[in-house]
Amino acid sequence: MQGRRNLIKNHADRVFESVRSSTAAARSAVAASWRRSFDRYGLDPSQRQEPRAVDESTLLRQKEAAGHLMHLAEPRLDELYGMIAHCGAAVFLTDRDGVVLSGRARPGDQGAFREWGLEAGRDWSEAAQGTNGIGTCLAERRALIIHRDEHFMAHNTGMSCIDAPVFGADGALVAALDVSSARADQTESLNQLIAAMVTRLSIQLETDLFRAEFSNRRILMTGEETSGAHLLAVDSDDIVVGASRAARQAFGIVREGAFDKRPLRDLTGEASVGLQGAERSAVLRAITRAGGNLSEAARELGIGRATLYRRMKRLGISER
């Protein structure tokens, strides 16, 4: 018992020393989160504070509100759990406020995670628990690892938490995907391996959400997926009507919410071709779709074959 009290005191002293420092927050993201936990939320690292539990009716309403997300996320949670369950870790999905909506843990580990307060209905926001994987991931909107004594609260320092944010089709933050472990022998290399899995699954979930939202549009993938799903939804006139968060960042579109629709060509940087160029592109697309059959291409364009020949000649398109 005395040893435990000493551990709590030593951790609290370390946190307070960092919080009092004028430079620590600038040097370390963890120290910056500790400062928020102390200054903004008034938390004490030495005090044990059980994660607040929402009542069952509130949790049910929150799950219903996240129904679309939950439907798409459950298979992804199963997939991730299947990859890490043998490590004694558990998988959790929270809403954008840090309330746990769903989780996966081996039967023999569920009691331990319940003691930590990691179960459905518990609030793991940074405001409630200080620096922790779920809350700090949501506060900073980025994938991260909070390993053991990087937690703000002393009673959470036995855990390693690995998290990635999930962004909806409109670029808004909708959830956090979390893998937590209370193993004392959890290594940094294992954390990094799990982090790669968590990030990959969060990107796949974002892709699922985007494709479901724009199921009646053409979806284009641009750029690398390492920083998120770069997806654009394009209508039949090649107008961009939707963009994922990563695509918004890449193309300078407002971070979240509605945006002014714009031609795909404007985003991709292709030179403007004017009306004649647009007409030539339309004719070439029709001919290509028809496999070179000019009669079929003319029907698709709604013109006669002779008219198509005249336009092809004017636009410099060979019959071959």
Rank of each mutant, 00 (worst) to 15 (best):
V99Y: 03
D208R: 11
E17Q: 15
L308A: 02
E213L: 00
G302D: 12
A271M: 05
A195R: 15
S272M: 05
G168Y: 02
E319Q: 11
I146H: 03
T23E: 14
T187C: 08
G103F: 13
D185S: 08
F113E: 01
I134N: 03
R96P: 02
L93A: 05
N191T: 00
D208N: 07
E270R: 14
R40M: 12
F152G: 01
W34G: 02
D260E: 14
T131K: 00
M1G: 10
H151S: 03
P263I: 05
R218V: 13
S272W: 04
T207F: 02
A169Y: 10
R248W: 11
V198W: 11
R20E: 11
S160P: 01
A306F: 08
D260T: 15
A182N: 09
M1F: 06
D163Y: 00
A65L: 08
G302R: 10
Q192N: 15
N216P: 00
S46I: 06
D235Y: 01
G130P: 01
I134F: 08
V91R: 02
L177F: 13
S202A: 15
V99P: 02
T226I: 10
A212F: 01
A12N: 00
L267D: 10
A182W: 01
D97Q: 08
P45D: 06
A25F: 13
A31E: 09
M221E: 15
F214V: 12
F251Q: 04
D95P: 02
L301F: 09
A298V: 01
R285H: 09
C161K: 03
D185M: 00
R285E: 09
V234F: 05
L220E: 15
G108D: 12
M197P: 00
G316T: 10
V240S: 05
I145R: 08
S57F: 04
R311G: 05
P263L: 06
D13R: 13
A169S: 15
T268D: 04
E256K: 10
S18G: 07
F167H: 09
A65Q: 12
E188V: 12
S33K: 03
A297E: 01
H68Q: 12
A212S: 14
S181V: 12
L93I: 03
T268Q: 11
M83G: 04
L60V: 05
L43K: 04
T131A: 05
A290H: 02
D78E: 15
Q204W: 08
H86D: 14
R14Y: 15
G158S: 11
E17Y: 09
R311D: 12
E188K: 13
I162M: 03
A212M: 00
A250Y: 10
F214R: 02
E140D: 13
S180E: 08
R122Y: 07
R211P: 09
H11N: 03
Y81R: 07
L275C: 04
L138N: 02
G269H: 06
S281Q: 14
S102N: 08
H230M: 10
